[in-house]
Each structure stands twice: as C-alpha cells, then as structure tokens.
C-alpha cells in the first residue's frame, strides 16, 4: 500500500530547537528509506511565504497569496512510501527526523476507481 506522510511543523521553530534535525540527517534518513526500497518520493518544501493557493470557480482561475489554511503548524515536507500495512508506515514516519519537533500525518493513498 502507498502512504503519504505529511510532515508538519512550526516553520519558525523547525530549524532552531535543540532537537531540530540538520539537513544532513534528513538527507541520510531519506537515503536509508530509498535503500530499503520503500521510497516513492520525498521532498522538503520552501516556507509558506512562497505558497500560492489556486482555485477555479466558474471557469476562472483565482489566486491567493499564502497557504490554503492558516494553521499553527505548516506543511514542511512529505514522504510518499510503499508499506505493507499501517504499522510499517507508522514505523517509517516515526523515523523522519522532523517528527521530533513537528508532527507527521500518515494517510493511506486512495485508489481511484476508474
């Protein structure tokens, strides 16, 4: 099964807490998931200042500056993994270094019925 692990954290604190992971550590973990053959994709994101929200209403494309919702913790990155079940996905998510300072939401991917 595919699971999307959404990494949320308070952007202002993500890199400044004593437990904050360094880029090297994040990279090393991603490499280890890659080597285990369970990685489909993973990226870190630019801060929400760079976000643009797109909506299409009545055929018109509407743009807003900023993220979809103002929340206490912001989406900071994601992992798309292949796991045998939720337990394995949780284990992978728990290894993401940013989980120490933020939260990781684990969501199963839905198969489109076509």
């Amino acid at each position: 099964m595919k699971y999307l692990c959404l990494v949320y954290s308070d952007e202002k604190l993500l890199h400044s807490l004593p437990d904050s992971p360094k880029d090297e550590e994040c990279f090393a973990y991603a490499a280890s998931v890659q080597n285990s053959g369970r990685m489909l994709a993973a990226e870190a994101l630019q801060p929400i200042d760079t976000a643009t929200t797109v909506r299409v209403r009545a055929g018109k494309t509407l743009l807003t500056d900023g993220p979809f919702a103002e929340t206490k913790e912001q989406l900071a990155g994601f992992y798309l993994v292949e796991a045998k079940d939720l337990n394995e996905a949780i284990q992978l998510a728990a290894g993401i270094p940013a989980a120490r300072v933020g939260s990781v939401e684990v969501r199963p991917v839905r198969q489109l019925e076509v």
């Binding site: 099964m1 045998k84 079940d85 939720l86 337990n87 684990v106 199963p108 839905r110």
Partner: peptide
Amino acid sequence: RDAAIPYEIPAAEQ
C-alpha cells in the same frame, strides 16, 4: 480496512 491496520500480534519489540 482503508488504512490497512494489520490483523496481527505485534512484534516482540512492540
């Protein structure tokens, strides 16, 4: 069912 919570006895370390 949808998140595939496994029907199993946890591994020893868990």
